[in-house]
């Protein structure tokens, strides 16, 4: 019985998310819908970054760059043909023939991001710790420069706007479920254990037959895939993509969610993503009415400092809490 607890938790999550999406899609106004979607996208981002940074201990700052790759690919594949002459007059002819519905376009975007991660990983994963962080930060800058200058395809700093608003709570909930399920399955498999082993002691892991490079690449690639998906969802939620959106600040925000939730804890990432998105959103009326901008960020930063002082390993550490797992731990 106890062993099935995670399965029940998953079933409860799926059912409640479906009901919740249905209710909110029919009852709430656009503002609330947008917040719900942002929360969901942040969950996808935080959980997938947790796979890279949390499980495997790769301090990657590159998540927004993978988001950008996925977002732009998805946007270009779904861009309405009739708008193309107006928005993208110099768009290469041969690319015109590629047009896909939203879901396959998202998948292609995710795979594109994963492929970029594979290429980047070959060189960057030779580095560790701070060096890896700096190298992935450089990768964000490279992507931004590329997006700014490839203006026949991306419209440069103007950004791609006028995208269709495909993203709704159903899509977002669906991807939240897929991301959480896959990351959960990975965590409690032999592969997931080897990822944690690489994080804890790479020499010992290597001596036991774990291939360090392929384990690290896998973590980066899967993380990047979901970042690409999140990028696609994000673009079609706010119906615009600009190179400036995918900045270091965004990377910082996602990392804060992972650290506060607990590096390695999926439940922690989900909760932290919800808390942070809602906190920042709650302070928005205050900021606008009284003209004190940035209060949300300050509160978030304070919260981070407090967590780091009183619970340095995050809310749940590496564990999944009992209310999800049951008492029986593997």
């Amino acid at each position: 019985m106890e062993m099935n607890r995670p399965r029940y938790s998953l079933a409860i999550m799926i059912i409640s998310l479906t009901v919740f999406s249905f209710l909110i899609e029919n009852m709430a106004n656009d503002y609330i819908l947008a917040i719900v979607c942002f929360t969901g996208i942040n969950i996808v981002l935080a959980v997938s970054l947790n796979l890279t940074n949390g499980f495997t201990g790769l301090f990657s700052l590159g998540h927004p760059a993978f988001m950008a790759v996925g977002g732009y690919i998805t946007a270009l594949l779904t861009f309405p043909a009739e708008k193309k002459p107006l928005f993208l007059p110099d768009f290469p002819q041969w690319l015109d023939s590629f047009h896909l519905p939203f879901f396959p376009a998202l998948l292609v975007g995710g795979c594109g991001a994963a492929f970029v991660a594979f290429l980047v990983g070959i060189s960057v994963l030779r580095l560790k710790g701070h060096y890896l962080a700096v190298a992935t930060m450089g990768f964000i800058i490279i992507i931004q420069v590329l997006l700014n200058n490839a203006d026949t395809i991306t419209r440069g700093p103007l950004g791609l706007n006028g995208l269709e608003d495909f993203t709704n709570t159903y899509w977002v909930s669906g991807w939240v479920i897929v991301t959480v399920y896959i990351c959960w399955k990975i965590k409690f498999s032999s592969l997931g254990r080897s990822m944690l082993a690489v994080r804890e002691d790479e020499m010992a892991a290597n001596a036991l037959g774990v291939n360090l490079f392929s384990t690290r690449s896998f973590a980066l690639i899967v993380g990047a895939f979901f970042a690409g998906i999140a990028g696609g969802l994000w673009g079609h939620l706010i119906t615009a993509l600009t190179p400036g959106s995918f900045s270091l600040l965004m990377s910082f925000n996602i990392i804060v969610m992972v650290v506060v939730g607990g590096t390695g804890s999926i439940t922690g990432s989900v909760l932290a993503a919800i808390i942070f998105t809602l906190t920042i959103e709650c302070f928005r009326p205050l900021e606008e009415n009284f003209g004190i901008y940035g209060v949300g960020e300050i509160v978030m930063a304070l919260f981070l400092v407090l967590v780091l002082i009183f619970k340095p390993s995050g809310i749940f550490g590496t564990e999944e809490p009992d209310f999800v797992m049951g008492k029986h731990k593997p």
Binding site: S190, R193, A205
Partner: peptide, 28 residues
């Protein structure tokens, strides 16, 4: 895989993993 296993200096247990998970990594 060929049958040579090393127990590294300073033990190198995976501190955050449970005892059983450590053994399972050994059988990776």
């Amino acid at each position: 895989g060929a049958g040579i296993s090393q127990c590294p200096e300073g033990r190198g247990v995976f501190a955050q993993l449970s005892v059983k998970e450590n053994l399972l990594v050994g059988a990776y």
